[in-house]
Write a protein that binds this DNA or RNA. Sequence first.
DNA 1: CTGTTAGCGCTTTCAC
DNA 2: GTGAAAGCGCTAACAG
Lengths: 327, 327
Amino acid sequence: MARIKDVAKRAGVSVASVSRVLAGQPGVGAETRERILTTIREMEYRPDLAARRLRSRRTDILGLIVSDIRNPFFTDVSRAVEDVAYQRGLRVMYCNADEDPAKETLYLEMMRDENVSGVILSPTQSLLERFRSQDFSFPIVLVDRALPDTQADAVVVDNADSTERMVRHMIETGRRRILFLYGEASATGCERYEGYAAAMRAAGLEVQAQGLAPTGEGALDITRAVLASSPRPEAIVCSNGPILLGLIDAIREAGLRVPQDLAISGFDDPFWARLVQPAVTAVAQPTYEMGRAAIELLLSRIANPGQEFRRVVLPGELVVRESSARA
Amino acid sequence: MARIKDVAKRAGVSVASVSRVLAGQPGVGAETRERILTTIREMEYRPDLAARRLRSRRTDILGLIVSDIRNPFFTDVSRAVEDVAYQRGLRVMYCNADEDPAKETLYLEMMRDENVSGVILSPTQSLLERFRSQDFSFPIVLVDRALPDTQADAVVVDNADSTERMVRHMIETGRRRILFLYGEASATGCERYEGYAAAMRAAGLEVQAQGLAPTGEGALDITRAVLASSPRPEAIVCSNGPILLGLIDAIREAGLRVPQDLAISGFDDPFWARLVQPAVTAVAQPTYEMGRAAIELLLSRIANPGQEFRRVVLPGELVVRESSARA
DNA sequence: CTGTTAGCGCTTTCAC
DNA sequence: GTGAAAGCGCTAACAG
């Protein structure tokens, strides 16, 4: 393996000049620069990243900490982050915190050990409640989750507004008794609840919401009970994919027809929403765009640490399908 | 930030002793070791990884190169790799090659630049055809894709056998004209074809297969044509998820009933297979196990570079659902 | 059992 | 415009 020293010797210059050329710095004559470049190519020289990182005290590595990469939402976000990062010569390190604050802390410490240039984080509720950017030695951009008053760079979707649009759509198609099923332990769930409540209030309808623990199993039990209750809701709106899934299973068990007996819709348009029959109405999140915005925000902060915190709010898109067609 | 030097000074020892304690090496008295450990904790000392990597010439970073992390198969594999890696103090760097040999080469070069300890790779067909482990400066484990004679560590599924079981199941439920739709440009697609052909031949039935380009759109066109042909097949077996998807769309367009008019099944049991109606029969791959096996294989080779190549073949599981019920 | 010391390969002053 | 030299923080060989 060729070293910078070898390149310098062969090109008849000092290592300093080679280093300058490598960094694209001025202070090297055009002729010398050409010669060095040629030599680098001839010797297939590749700088040693460990040495460079030790000396320069920067890694150009970004961290990405999400709850679970198997969640398609985060898969898309991560894909965007990676695309941009690699394009700019940055590396990405991935971590799954599984909504576990202890694991999250562990990975955050790992990020410090790695001396990463920055981190994109989808925080647990627990961290979010006491989150302060200045507690960390590296810049952090929050993605998907942020409290209204969180002091940090963040990229979120317009949870309240888009849910409000979705509920309004349900009202417009003739539903009155509209139940909202949501994850009450999550910031996004609560924001979506606000949107639901606003739409109901504006229409003079009764708010009828049911908070759930964020487990897939619980959703099935609760929806079973809800479907058996009387009068049965005319529509059920879910705040996330797992809840929607539980609802669909319960509906099939009960032998109900959608949208005749009951209209349904969800948030975070999953791939299968268009495949089930009837296809499900949902708010699609601009996942790739969110990842893209997150890394742009992070790079911008890295370049300019002193700047004000910025919050990017991206619009969810209501995708109307058969599950909410006029009965 | 505390340095090893500071720890040594404060504990009244040399940096060598601190380094030994850090590495868990012998040659330090129990008492001294305790004192050093305490000091480390007090000062919240964390070794500088860049320095360590430069000096020790090893990074304990693994590379993971797949076609697209948005493919649930690879998402699961990656999750397993990460779980094991972090558990053992290794880092993972993720890359999406998008089935593009140029991009794949780029990332492989990046891995060399990073001086990774090893790589888990799902190679493009193009690389696979000329793959030689010795062309790389780091150990590589192939996952999902390997030719019969590829000289490399690899983890694959029993493509031919499990497809054969699936086709046999179609025969047992009374189908005779069974069409096989497969990606002919992929190693896995071809292996699955062999399994299909074996099952048909064994039953004295006519092999009737159609190779497709690996694009989702093409599948829809071809299946449209197939469904319109006469006599129409009694069953269609697909070699992968995208093809199955195209088939389902075409069936709905044509207004055919499954399984009465036509039985269908797929490979690589996607999450939505149980959600569509009727639910689709498919071969489920042990994705998490494959990732786990891949990293175990990699770690084993890193520990013992000279050992023989090993190939782990994991069984696919036939999940029978309504789409192949007796007509 | 413990300490001294020579680098790992690079960037970055500082001189010239 | 160019080079010499001083480290970045650590590990490991060697000496005691």
